[in-house]
Design a protein around this nucleic acid. Structure first.
Lengths: 139, 139
DNA sequence: ATATATAATCAGTATAACTGACTATATTTG
DNA sequence: CAAATATAGTCAGTTATACTGATTATATAT
């Protein structure tokens, strides 16, 4: 075993690179990329979020968020409604169409994940998820 | 717990994003980015590799590899020597200067990794590495 | 009432990777 | 052996993505 394969950063990067490539392919028919999927799911799970909220929680730049939400809105997956308590900010909601897309995507993405994680047994996967959540929560 | 945080892809992505940001900062003084560090380390561990070899093993595009190696050569970290058995291909080697840089980087990067992985105990880390290597080997 | 802060936007810029064509060399095949 | 095909590396130009800094509208603090 060599140093390169001993590096968590390297290993994370390569595993993610493969996942992202497969995700990107899976998402082509839905006309969104992995980031936009993340944003859509975030809005579904956090109704009435502002673009700022999402930017902060998902570590995505505020100006980039504009184009992601533009795109999702153009596709009719989200709606920008105004927040009556702060007319500077939007209250974003996922449309019915967006919800259906999320459900379809989820199915495909879970399948894609399983492929990449296929060398792991159930216990490994469980443990991996726990570990990742621990790290994520500490960020 | 929500769906977003249940997604391995999402969790991988966010953990890596943090790691990459910290790595990038760590590497500023050495004037290379994470990819170039990876290439340098690969050459160190696989003397006389051609650019093609590295491209394939590290899943980096061949044309992108040209600029990475250009950069590493300009800094005097690697040398492009010709492969006498195939004059189309280079035999890349890491210089003494490059070796010293690798050693310094490794120290800093290990420290950075520890920071990101600080919520994990020793056993968690061990397990995580084993799991990542399993996945990497299956790619 | 004025000054400061914030959410969203936009034009312009920067960065990074990829596409496809090209050169030089190697290998295969007829 | 000569011709055709394949391969390693390069480069110009394109594409994709995100960031910088300024701007508008609204909110909050002094």
């Amino acid at each position: 075993m060599n140093q390169l394969n001993q590096s968590y950063g390297f290993l994370f990067g390569k595993v993610l690179q493969q996942m992202e490539n497969k995700f990107a392919e899976t998402l082509i028919p839905f006309n969104i990329d992995a980031r936009q999927y993340g944003v859509l799911l975030f809005i579904k799970e956090n109704r009435y979020s502002s673009q700022k909220d999402i930017s902060q929680k998902l570590y995505i730049d505020r100006t980039t968020m504009v184009s992601h939400v533009d795109h999702l809105e153009t596709l009719g997956f989200v709606e920008r409604t105004r927040n009556p308590n702060d007319r500077r900010a939007y209250s974003l909601i996922v449309t019915e169409k967006g919800t259906r897309v999320l459900e379809s995507c989820w199915e495909f993405l879970t399948k894609t994940e399983s492929e990449v994680l296929s060398p792991l047994n159930h216990k490994d996967k469980q443990f991996l998820k726990e570990i990742l959540i621990k790290i994520w929560n500490s960020l």
